[in-house]
């Protein structure tokens, strides 16, 4: 049997006295698109941020492509990975943020070149060629020389997706990628994500876009209060939600 690309096992995470994740287990198969939904404060973004170790988990295990993230097991004990090896793991995991976080002092092209050039050790010409290709893929080739401040939110988010793809990640994490956008700019970003899913990219998407989840997602997970309350095929689960809280949540967002 194929092992999943992302394996999340009994993950717990607390911020001070507040336990945000109370034992979450979830698999993302290779090439699969898992959408994570839930009310704000439910822990869904925290779960995503644990996968590339922007947050350190308190209990459980997370593996990407079979490799334990952030830790190594030696002599039967778990040890934190040294920073250099954690950085190497992160290169395999793309992350797209709600607020884009493009580097404002670099052009769109330079933003996409930055990772391969600085972290990947790719030559400047190769990084540029690859960045131009990726910008073309997200429909931003014409604005390659623009600074982020000169782009609309949707355009910035498409550049941010290209920036993550430039590292050739094995999995892409999306943290509410359309929540900071004006409504008319949402579709252009979702279109890029749809293409990406169709190309076979493994994706984990925290979102409020139920339409996207139904149409593109292979699996839908509803998180509330730090636990997975309901999950399954998006079309079935959205058509016939069983859990009371999930139903109430859908009533609010749909």
């Amino acid at each position: 049997m194929d092992r999943p690309m992302v394996e999340i096992r009994s993950v717990r995470k607390r911020f001070g006295a507040l336990e945000v994740l109370k034992g979450v287990s979830l698999d993302v198969p290779e090439g699969g698109v898992v959408c994570v939904v839930g009310p704000s404060g439910s822990g869904k973004s925290t779960l995503l941020r644990c996968v590339n170790r922007l947050e350190t988990i308190d209990a459980g295990r997370i593996k990407v492509d079979g490799e334990l993230i952030g830790f190594e097991e030696r002599d039967g004990r778990l040890r934190h990975l040294p920073p250099a090896r954690l950085n190497r793991q992160r290169q395999n995991i793309g992350m797209v943020f709600q607020r884009f976080h493009l580097f404002p002092h670099r052009t769109a092209l330079e933003n996409v070149m930055e990772g391969p050039l600085i972290v990947g050790g790719v030559s400047r010409e190769e990084a540029r060629r690859q960045a131009e290709e990726l910008l073309d893929r997200v429909g931003m080739a014409e604005r390659a020389g623009h600074y982020p401040g000169q782009l609309s939110g949707g355009q910035q988010q498409r550049v941010a997706i290209a920036r993550s793809l430039a590292m050739r990640p094995k999995v892409m994490l999306f943290d509410e990628p359309t929540s900071a956008l004006d409504p008319e700019l949402v579709q252009e970003v979702l279109a890029v994500m749809r293409d990406l899913a169709a190309s076979g990219m493994t994706m984990m998407v925290v979102t409020h876009e139920m339409g996207f989840a139904r149409e593109v997602g292979d699996h839908l997970v509803f998180i509330d209060d730090g636990v997975i309350v309901e999950q399954g095929d998006p079309r079935e689960v959205l058509a016939d939600p069983r859990n009371e809280r999930f139903r109430a949540f859908l009533g609010r967002v749909l």
Partner: peptide, 11 residues
């Protein structure tokens, strides 16, 4: 967020 975006790239 700038720091996080850079760390996510593996810097």
């Amino acid at each position: 967020g700038q720091r996080e975006a850079a760390e996510a790239l593996g810097m």
